[in-house]
Amino acid sequence: METSKKAVITLEGITKTYVNGKLTVPVLHGIDLSIYEGEFTSIMGPSGSGKSTFMNILGCLDRPTSGSYRLDGEEVAHLGDDELAYVRNKRIGFVFQSFNLLPKLTALDNVALPMVYAGVSKAERKARASQLLTDLGLGTRLEHMPAELSGGQRQRVAIARALANDPAIIMADEPTGNLDSKASLDVMHIFTELYQEGRTIILVTHEPDIAEYAGRNVVLKDGLIVEDRINPHMKGLQVGGESHV
């Protein structure tokens, strides 16, 4: 795939093999892929295709067995644990299917937590977390615990948390998997708006209708990319770039 935009992620020959005693399980078999600045990419594939392993490597949650992974030109495939933690905290925002909110923290404190690790002052953490939640329609839910929120509201808290340190890249792993159709539309509307703001969005999904929100669809099968196509009819976009659902 050729483009004039800058590649923010470049993968070359990425493999991943899990070893459990004498059992060796190869999952990824040599992935070559570039993801470009401001791109909205979906990663699709059937169960067992390797997409979750692939997403963990993209998000620096796991290391490849071999190959090169460059993030903004910097090799990250073999960084140490502290260096990878910095990348995850400052450069990539994560959204998960199961929300991964801390149950004993309020919505506000869940969103503020990544800023604690980034060394942001308490006053700034609170102000930014409050603004992010308000922007996502949760201004009246700041002090609610996760158990007091609907699934869609919890996912919006998770998106706000992903945005806490203003990362250029948002990675979402099945973000609508635990949501009903209305909440799924709301969440995909948010991702569309983040894309329109210029963020790079990478979304893993098994749902074709969710993948249609992305401008590029990458399909994995048996640990290999078998399809990489441009989607000229992104759902959620109108002529002129306005979003709708």
Rank of each mutant, 00 (worst) to 15 (best):
L61Q: 10
V116K: 07
A112R: 01
M55P: 07
G73D: 13
F40S: 09
L105H: 06
I35M: 09
Q97D: 08
N56Q: 11
C60H: 12
G38M: 12
N56W: 05
S66F: 08
L84W: 07
S98A: 14
E74S: 09
A127T: 13
P64R: 07
D72A: 11
L113M: 14
S47V: 06
K90V: 00
F94W: 01
F94C: 01
K126P: 01
S52K: 03
A85P: 12
Y86T: 06
L79F: 15
K51F: 04
E75Y: 04
D81P: 03
L84N: 06
V116R: 07
M55R: 03
G119H: 09
T53H: 03
G45Q: 06
G73R: 12
E74D: 09
F99R: 05
M44D: 02
S121N: 11
S66A: 15
L79Y: 15
G67Q: 05
R91A: 11
L61P: 02
A77Y: 14
D82N: 15
G67E: 13
F96A: 04
T65C: 08
L79V: 13
R91L: 12
Y86P: 05
A118H: 00
S47M: 04
Y36V: 05
E37D: 15
G45D: 01
S52F: 05
K104Y: 11
K90R: 15
V120G: 02
E39Y: 08
K90H: 11
S66K: 14
T106W: 03
D72T: 01
L108R: 13
G38S: 03
F94S: 00
A85M: 07
L58D: 10
L101I: 08
E75F: 09
E83H: 07
R125K: 14
H78G: 13
L61F: 14
N56C: 10
A112C: 06
Y36P: 01
N89I: 01
N56D: 13
L61W: 04
V111G: 06
K90G: 00
G93E: 03
G73F: 14
E39C: 01
F99K: 04
T65M: 06
T53E: 10
L79M: 13
H78W: 14
A107E: 04
S98V: 10
L61A: 12
R88C: 08
L101Y: 02
R128W: 02
S68M: 09
Q97G: 11
E37Q: 15
R70S: 13
D109C: 10
P103E: 02
G67C: 12
Y86A: 10
D62E: 15
Y36Q: 03
R128G: 10
L108G: 09
R128A: 12
I57L: 07
G80S: 14
D72L: 12
L84V: 01
E83R: 15
I35Y: 07
S121T: 14
Y86G: 02
E83M: 05
G59Y: 05
S68T: 13
T53Y: 04
L108T: 00
H78F: 15
E75S: 12
A127C: 03
S42D: 01
S68G: 01
F54Y: 08
Y86V: 08
D72S: 07
N56F: 05
G80F: 11
G45R: 05
K122G: 01
K51E: 10
R70F: 10
A107R: 03
Y36E: 12
Q97T: 13
A127P: 00
A85K: 11
